[in-house]
Write a protein that binds this DNA or RNA. Structure first.
Length: 434
RNA sequence: GUGGGUGUAGCUCAGUUGGUUAGAGCACCUGGUUGUGGUCCAGGGGGUCACGGGUUCGAAUCCCGUCAUCCACCCCA
């Protein structure tokens, strides 16, 4: 073969396309029933848009180019900058809180590996214009609502919830200066992935005093909020407020009936610097995969993009890991598309009749097709079977046999009688992805 | 960007210490029961063995390079 798909991209043959549509349609349906409205922006943005909040490291993982007008452009690696740009442009006319979702196609020029591709789809949920922890609760609920809709229980996936402000408070208490906060947070973020010794080495290199590591670990490993409060000591009023937020968050999630999916876990820090409050990641129970989703509060972001200071919170869920997880848990639905009716000419010279019946059925919203070849009934039934049809409509000069291919039952009547109201005799597919 | 594994038919894979015309199953196509399916039977198409170079009388097989893919690191928006 001379031409191949580009590294890190996927060809969506019909089976796979059906799966992609299933994810997209479920994401969309869940978003809408949670009160979010859909938006989208261009795949291409000015390169500058992505350097505002991210450094050069990120820029090196972008697909970027200069167009014929000399503009430095990039294919979007995430939708949040576009969201910020769009919201900022109309912030004064948008009723708050803004509850928007998007299903963007994204591109990142990194090396592909399990659950990571160069081109992928992501579900983004954001609430802008609310400082309340209720907004965080709504986002988390929406994520769980989706996973539950797809058949994943609290035994399959869990939301681990941490807090940036509390983690910062713990680091301050450990003697880390505010100017050294970012590398210290980065070190804590890596802790779950490395050995205790390696973590200690990394932490000290990041400027965390060695003699405070035990206390920091105890803080991160706290099982409950009272433990957290204890490890922060008397602390400041701010920390007490953050602990209260986590408490009401957990309460709200309980109220909405998804408390069993959620767990306090202060080891969740998130890599990015812009998070300002509650942060969370969703993992498979075994913890063998990458995060299915991740998000949190980012109150400074709109201002960073030239807008006002407004509260914002949200998450992103990629398609790659989700699909792997659903496959592992055997929760992928059977999406084999089938026809409602396969129309067969049961005698010779009936093509005109076949076309008439097919036309009428299709017009009535019934998925109908017929054989490209005029051949024996047996062959055509075989084809109907291969096409996964629910009914074979076998035509003769004046009568029609309606055969249920699953049960083998067949009823005969006049063609006119059938076409009068075909739905009285057949049950059409309720598969919306047909 | 770095490191390791793997590249044989559309898919999953065989292919014996290098030896003549490269195989199977599934899928696909055609035909068989003068016509009501999923089975069965017979036949068929399809591979420059990822690509390029080297060693050899001879390479799918050994060596080098390139590319792709998978896994991991970096990073993770």
């Amino acid at each position: 073969m001379k031409f191949k798909a580009v590294k890190g991209t996927r060809d969506f043959y019909p089976d796979r396309m059906a799966m992609r549509n299933y994810l997209a349609e479920t994401w969309r349906a869940v978003s809408l029933r949670n009160g979010f409205v859909e938006f989208d922006g261009p795949v291409l943005e000015y390169l500058d848009l992505f350097s505002v909040k991210s450094g050069d490291e990120i820029a090196s993982q972008l697909f970027s180019f200069t167009d014929r007008g000399g503009r430095a452009l990039a294919m979007r690696p995430e939708i949040t900058p576009t969201l910020a740009r769009m919201v900022n442009a109309q912030i004064n006319s948008l009723p708050r809180p803004i509850k928007w979702f998007s299903l963007p196609r994204l591109f990142r020029a990194e090396n592909p590996q399990k659950g990571r591709l160069r081109e992928f789809f992501q579900w983004n949920i954001d609430i802008i214009g609310s400082d309340s922890v209720l907004a965080d609760a709504e986002c988390i609920f929406t994520a769980i609502d989706c996973l539950r809709e797809m058949g994943l229980s609290a035994d399959d996936v869990g939301v681990r919830i941490g807090s940036r402000p509390l983690t910062v408070a713990a680091l301050r208490l450990a003697g880390v200066d505010d100017s050294a906060m970012e590398p210290a947070l980065a070190a804590l973020d890596k802790r779950p992935k490395v050995s205790p010794d390696a973590f200690a080495e990394m932490a000290v290199a990041a400027g965390i005093p060695a003699d405070s590591l035990d206390k920091l670990c105890a803080f991160q490993d706290a099982e409950g909020l009272s433990d957290v409060a204890a490890s922060l000591g008397e602390g400041d009023a701010n920390s007490a407020g953050e602990i209260a937020k986590l408490e009401s968050l957990m309460g709200y999630l309980d109220n909405m009936g998804v408390g069993d999916y959620c767990k306090l876990d202060l080891r969740i820090v998130r890599g990015l610097a812009y998070y300002t409050g509650i942060v969370y990641e969703i993992f498979d129970a075994a913890g063998s995969l990458r995060a299915v989703a991740g998000g949190g509060r980012y109150d400074n972001l709109l201002k960073l993009f030239g807008g006002p200071e407004v509260g914002a919170t949200g998450f992103g869920m990629g398609d790659a890991v989700l699909e792997i997880l659903l496959a592992e848990k055997e929760k992928l639905p059977d999406l084999s598309a089938g026809l409602d009716c396969f129309v067969i000419d049961g005698e010779s010279n009936l093509l005109e009749k076949v076309l008439e019946v097919v036309g009428r059925l299709r017009q009535g919203g019934i998925a109908a097709d017929f054989s490209a070849k005029r051949q024996a009934v047996g062959k055509q039934l075989k084809e109907a079977n291969r096409r996964n049809a629910r009914y074979a409509i076998i035509l003769r000069a004046d009568t029609v046999g309606i055969k249920n291919l699953a049960t083998g039952e067949q009823t005969d009547m006049s063609i006119d009688e059938f076409l009068e109201k075909p739905l009285a005799y057949i049950k059409i597919s309720d598969n919306p992805f047909l």
